[in-house]
Each structure stands twice: as C-alpha cells, then as structure tokens.
Design a protein around this nucleic acid. Sequence first.
RNA 1: GGGCGUGUAGCUCAACGGUAGAGCAGUGGCCUUUUAAGCCAUUGGUUGGGGGUUCGAAUCCCUCCACGCUCACCA
Length: 509
Amino acid sequence: MWQPTNTPEQDRARKLSELQERGVQPYPNRVTRTHTAREAVSAFEAAEAANPDAPAPLTVTVCGRIVRQNLKGKAFFAHIEDGTGRVQLFVRIDGVGEETFEMIRRHLDLGDFVQARGTMMRTRTGEVSVLVDELVLLAKALSPLPVIKERVADDGSVERYGAFNDVEERYRQRYADLAVNPDSREVFRKRAQTVSALRRFLDGEGSLEVETPILQPIYGGAAARPFITHHNQLHQDLYLRISFELYLKRLLVGMYDAVYEIGRDFRNEGVSFKHNPEFTQLEFYQAYTDYHGMMDLTERMIACVAEQVTGGTTISFEGHTINLAPPWRRITLREAIRGQTGIDYADHPDAKSLFGAMKAAGLAASPTATWGKLVDTLLGDAVEPSLIQPTFILDYPRDISPFAKTVPGDPTHVERFEVFVGGMEMGNAFTELNDPLDQEARFLEMSHLYAAEDEEATPVDGDYLRAMRYGMPPCGGCGVGVDRLVMLLTDRSAIREVLLFPHLRERQA
RNA sequence: GGGCGUGUAGCUCAACGGUAGAGCAGUGGCCUUUUAAGCCAUUGGUUGGGGGUUCGAAUCCCUCCACGCUCACCA
C-alpha cells in the first residue's frame, strides 16, 4: 500500500482521510459539465458582445484541474484547466457557504480536480471568471505536481517561474511532464496531426491503408538485428518486424495498385538521439511508377503535411530555416560524396582502394567493411550532416540495396534514393525489384556477404519469392521515419522528445 | 561497449574540505476582486547507492546505478 514519502504527500494524505471522515467522496463516480473552460469564456464574451452593458446571465458548470490558487481571506481565486484551456474560479464564502469554503481552505490542493457551478462574470481586473456557487471535489491529487507559475506580460508573452525540466524524470513520468508543460503537450498534438495528415494525403492519392504482421516468422526488408520472441503453443520462434517492405509488396502481387502502412518497427540496436528500439514507420508502395515518381510523391506529401501541421512549408529546425516547398534538390550519391570529400568512389571500385582513399582524406572507416558499406559511411559521416535543406540523394551501390532495380546501363548502382532534411535521414525508397530470379540471386548474394551468424544478414524469404513469381507490377516504394518527421516539424532534436514513452533503462530499486 | 559530464528538499537551484541553504510548493496566522498576490511565522534532507581518505566529506578517491553529450554501432 502506498505511503506518503514527503511532507506535501503526508499533508494530502491527511486531507484525504479528513475529507472521508466528513463524508466527502474524494473520487465520485458522477460528473456534470456544461461547458469546457474555453466554451465558458467564449460564451460569456459572446454575451458581452451582444449586450456590452448588461450581458445575459450565463450559468455554467466547468471541470478541471486546479493549476493556480490564491486564498484571500474569505475569497478564493483559482484557475482550473481542462483540455481546452483555463478559466478562473472566483469563490466567495457568501457564494458557497461556510462548509464548502472551509473545505476549500483546508483540503483543496493544487492538482486536484474539481467541478464548479456558477455564473460568468468579469472580475475587477477584467478576467472572465466563474463566480462559483457550488464546488465539488472530483479527484484528490495525493502527490504534488511540479509547480510552475506563469505571468502573462502585456505583449501576451508568457513568462514562466519554476520548471519541470529534468529530462529523465520528464520521460519516466511523462504524465507529469504533459500535465505541467504545455510545450510537451503541443508536441504530441502535432505528432497526431502529422500522422493523420499523412493518412489523409495517402488516402487522397488512392492508396489503401493495410495492416501486416508484426510477429513474423522471417524478418526482412532492412538490415537490422531483430527482437526474437516465441510462440509457446506453436513451438515457433518469431521476430518482431524490422520493416513492412516484403509484406506490402506481396499486396501489389494481389492487385492493389497502392498500399501503405503506418506502424511500429522494432530494431534491436543502439539507442541514440535519433534511434529508439521501437519507432514508427510509414511505408507506401505504388504500382506503375518508379523512384522518380516516389520522389515527386514524397516531396508533395511532406510539404502538404508540414503545411497542415505548422501552417506553412517554411519551418525552423535547430536554428535553421528550412524550405520544404517542392521541388527539392536531387543529386546523385556519387556527386554528393565527391562534392563533400573530393573522393570519387568510381575511381576506387574495390573496398581496399576506397578504404585507402578515405584514410588519406582523414576519414574514419572500418578496414573490414565492404565497398558498399564504405560508401554508406561516406554518406553518413561526410554528407548527411550537411543536408539541411531537403535533398534527395540518388543511385546507391547495388550491394547495400538488395530490393532495388539496377540503374539501366550501370550494374553497380541501383535506383534508390534517401531523402534528408535537417541533417537527418527522413526516408528511403527504391524502384522496387520485381524480377523474382534476380531477387532470389540478391538474397543469396546477401546471405553470402554476411557471415552465417551475423544477425543483420537478410534471410531468404521463400514465400516472398513465390509471390513475386506470380508477377509483380513495376512499382516504387518508400519508407519514411515518422518520429523523425515529427522531430522536424516540432523542432525537437531528440527522438525521445517526440515519443510519449521512450525506452529507458529499468531503474534499480 | 569507450570517453566526457550530471545526480543536493516535492520542483528549480546555491553551497565545492569546516554546523546543508534559497525561491516556489507545504503548514499556521491576517486579508471577500486576486492573478508569479502580499505580509508574518514555520515544517521539510541518510546531498543517487555502497566503500575509502581525513580530526572533519555534498565537496577528494574508488565502485555501482541512472541520465545527458560524444565515439563506436545503426538504412
């Protein structure tokens, strides 16, 4: 059973039992509400506008959490907050009676939820308020939330006194963060808007939203280590998906022209400011197009989403002004690397030579990496951080892209792009490989490239190959990291800021 | 996993070898139009855990834990 651990909690626990002794139900079942905080204020303002001298009397019942209180002798002022905003309660002992007023004085705390009935009025200082005639406790708060006071300056700017900004505690107790920090609440509102804007956009394109297995007997579609779990009755190991790719493309075989899925991917890898073990991915696939079509679609989609979420296509991210209006810059990977490092990887067609060139240029590289991996390192280290304005990097080495078609006339490259904004990879797309025999060869190639015990190896997915042998239309596909898109649109530099409950290490007792 | 840094009251922070403090919150008092209310009084801490050095440790050392930054890893 919970025991108070500090003085404020002891006080609240005492108040709780005293209330119960007096027959007050501190957590009643029934609630009445006629107006939200915002509705109450705007209804009164409307009544004032209609008749400035004598606005029609307006009785409301509002509910919310007490976020500010000020006892002033036989009067009591409080702001209550609900999901729509705040409204001030003005309680006078004459209005509610001595018993209720004494309850307010002795037993009400910041953080408690109350229901208040009264008439709308303006106080002497001009604030629209509820002059309360009945006040009911809806829920007693036993632990104190961090106290943050606000002063609204004449110019409308809000100055805040006090804070709850310990990063770890904000993540571990997100409920407290949200309750107390409106900025945090806004981030997740924008996150929801982002996801629904993505849905609306793709629905409008005629794409079908689908759901594919999260528990998969064979994982694939990306190079990442999976989480492994087990189905007891089937005596079968299952993997949490690392991508949706292979299932979504099966659906194109099934004659949907365009499908998409928004959902969770799981990767058993390092955690960083832009990596969480589970993250939200959007993947969309469209028949009868290629990666050029995907680029057009992607830039239109992100610009459209940005407009709906932020009100425009010019956004601010980490001090940069970023213009998301299409068209976006398109440059080949080879040119981008040459431009940033002076290295033309075409001059270094094998891993050894490229490694040497990178060393000579003072760039870190793993001596055991494959040629494709080295190119990827060059991209990640030398190019990616410089890609602040939206940029498509196109045409990737074939051996790190097992699901993309080769560039006609250039067997060493595939039709693939990654899109970068704000120095972060936001998406990855291909002209999807639809040749079942070529795909099978690529699978085998990949499994030879990685050691057998390497968990990043892409396992051969026989069922996927069977699907493709029935005929898959030419198509383009793209994956977009939704969390990173939200980071971009909310100007947050850590993925944990845009995840409600980011993964944290378990704390020892 | 490596390096650097942080951890003090419910929250935000001081004190950096010599009795652990402030503001807010809390408690008691005054105030029936306040709004960061104010005024008076006051409670609250094994200074993240454990060990060591020292006459004396929040402070120095070791170790463990968590978080942050960074490197490695990572489509």
